[in-house]
Design a protein around this nucleic acid. Structure first.
Length: 571
RNA sequence: UGGGGAAUAGUUCAACGGUAGAACAGCGGACUCUGACUCCGUUAAUCUAGGUUCGAAUCCUAGUUCCCCAGCCA
């Protein structure tokens, strides 16, 4: 083993298992699969699974299939199928020609079910749903056998074929495996293999009136595709004996193995398809791609780069312990990528007008600004300075606390790339609100440095009043107030300030070219932003992907509505 | 009183009988034309009790706590 290999051992228990299997020669090629049900959009939790499955395949020279687990036509839609493919690609993974559907195997699955019947290992049950539940027993009491459990193979076959033929209404009968009604594992108490569903399937249309259950379809689909490592989440752990039972009792072409890992949970976030669907359906958000949603579509629209998602997933690791990851860890990954890639621009979110009294009326001049402080190849751009400017309202305080470095009466600060200015006078309206600042500038400080070497405590971003353009800026905060929102009562926990729309922001002209391109950009001292698809010529809309780390907010104890903030303060 | 899992810094993950380590968060400092970035330093953990062993986070025993399972959802 090389030093490099020794220094980078299998990073998690799944990769350890795969490595061991390969070392032992149990498989030639690793084959994994990502098996979404197309009943909703993919979210950041799925990203963990996608990165795991595709990542393992990639790292060990194998392949990963994308397989739609489309066994329930009452919940699945083509829109979701399309969205899932789009999102997996966007995340950066490629299934090549290995695109499959459980529905591709319906006929084979059906034939195997007949085999089970002929072997006396499956039977048609006429019990009502109510009776079935009653006879299933409880967690502590065994179930009771169905009165239909001992039908002959012939009778079962006849009934099952008539189920397929559509002779019975929904719910009239089911096909069940004959395993053990007394098992402590409820999944083994004669699980349902097929139920009658007169529904139109996105792919098979109305050719079927019975559909296989997840348990019956999943393992056999894995076996058909030659999956070696079938990786799923913890809640399927006690399905594994059933997964194996099918593979042991059916003549399948291979016997994959199921391994379970802990799904992702995030603070201030709900990752439940049920809840996410409800947020969309009930209009709490604008859609599956609302930038506040933890969906891949939402994160994409918000401006999160796929690399950041992958890096985040890599860092949180894979284990079997239930856990909740601090959303701050995700934000850190986003900032890390964007800091390297996003060009810098100046934008004033909440404008406060300032007039440079000693700057000649009507005069303007161009100054150089760098596009990326750590990347000279990003070049520079010209920005126009003039007598009337806008600065950020938050950058002025009439009665500042001692640690406030920014503008206040009598205080000198630097306007980035431009001049030192000093606040001379505060203009207020009748209501006593500050509406304008009268300032002076020092012509000797052109470019941002004083020849006499004097320093200022702060550098502010600014835009020219005349030469800046208007924009709408959407600030996002967490959708929920609680660090651990309750999925069963999420509505009460909704953050009223999850979306804040700023309609009179001012952008430096160089931002106009960004227009509808999805390029991320850093508004200096504010955060990372990206143009939203709602942008129109003449009306730019920007989404805040994530704010910059803000030490001042912490020092000043400023209230942050809802929070971009994360991590509870230690007591 | 059934079955299946999991317990390591505040959080997430390592350590696979041999010095408990990383990332995020926190704190302190340096740097700075972004209170950003970067850099340096630093606080902080093996669920409990026994046992085996020269040596235990790791093995054994007994507990404790938490999670999942009673869909014709996945």
């Amino acid at each position: 083993m090389s030093v490099a290999e020794a220094a980078a051992p299998g990073r998690d228990f799944i990769r350890d298992i795969v490595q061991a299997d390969l070392d032992a020669g149990r498989y030639e090629t690793v084959v994994t699969r990502f098996p979404p049900e197309p009943n909703g959009y993919l979210h950041i939790g799925h990203a963990k699974s996608i990165c795991l499955n595709f990542g393992v395949a990639e790292e060990f020279g194998g392949r990963c299939h994308l397989r739609f687990d489309d066994t329930n036509p009452t919940k699945e839609e083509q829109e979701y199928i399309d969205a899932i493919e789009r999102d997996v690609r966007w995340l950066g993974f490629d299934w090549g020609k290995h695109l499959y559907h459980a529905s591709d195997y319906f006929e084979q699955l059906y034939q195997w079910a007949e085999d089970l019947i002929r072997d006396g290992k499956a039977y048609v049950d006429d019990q009502s749903q109510h009776d079935m539940r009653a006879n299933r027993g409880t967690l502590t009491e065994p179930g009771r056998n169905s009165p239909f459990r001992d039908r002959t193979a012939e009778e079962n076959l006849d009934l099952f074929r008539r189920m397929r033929a559509g002779e019975f209404p929904n719910g009239a009968r089911v096909l069940r495996a004959k395993i053990d009604m007394g098992s402590g594992n409820i999944n083994l108490r004669d699980p349902v293999l097929y139920r009658i569903l007169h529904a139109t399937h996105p792919r098979t249309g109305s050719t079927w009136s019975i559909y296989p259950s997840y348990d019956y379809a999943h393992g056999q689909s894995d076996a058909i595709e030659g999956i070696t490592h079938s990786i799923c989440t913890l809640e399927f752990e006690d399905h594994r004996p059933l997964y194996d039972w099918f593979l042991d009792n059916i003549k399948v072409p291979s016997h994959p193995h199921q391994y379970e890992f802990a799904r992702l949970n995030l603070t201030y976030t709900i990752l439940s398809k049920r809840v996410l669907t409800q947020l969309v359906r009930d209009g709490y958000v604008s859609g599956w791609d609302d930038p506040r949603m933890p969906t891949l579509a939402g994160l994409r629209r918000r401006g999160v780069p796929p690399e950041a998602l992958r890096e985040f997933v890599r860092r949180i690791g894979v284990a079997k312990a239930n856990s909740v990851v601090d959303i701050g860890m995700f934000e850190h990954a986003v900032r890390e990528v964007l800091n390297k890639t996003a060009q810098r621009r100046m934008a004033v979110l909440r404008p406060l007008k300032i007039v440079i009294e000693n700057y000649p009326e009507g005069q303007t001049e161009e100054l150089d600004a760098v596009n990326h402080p750590d990347d000279p190849t990003a070049g520079t751009r010209k920005i126009r300075f003039g007598r009337e400017l806008y600065v950020e309202r938050d950058d002025f305080m009439e009665n500042p606390p001692k640690k406030f470095f920014r503008l206040s009466p009598g205080k000198e600060v630097r306007l980035r790339y431009a001049y030192f200015v000093t606040c001379r006078e505060v203009v207020k309206n009748a209501a006593g609100e500050v509406v304008e600042l009268r300032c002076t500038y020092d012509p000797a400080t052109r470019g941002g440095n004083a020849p006499d070497g004097r320093k200022v405590q702060a550098t502010l971003h600014w835009v020219s009043a005349k030469d800046s353009g208007p924009a709408e800026i959407r600030l996002y905060n967490s959708l929920f107030l609680s660090p651990s929102p309750d999925p069963t009562n999420f509505a009460a926990d909704l953050n009223p300030n999850s979306l804040e729309v700023l309609t009179d922001a001012r952008l430096e002209p160089a931002l106009a070219v960004l227009g509808n391109s999805p390029e991320p950009v850093q508004f200096e001292r504010q955060g990372y932003f990206c143009p939203d698809q709602d942008s129109k010529p003449g009306k730019l809309v920007f989404n805040r992907t994530v704010g910059l780390r803000d030490t001042w907010a912490k020092v000043s104890g400023a209230t942050v509505s809802g929070a971009n903030v994360s991590g509870a303060k230690g007591a």
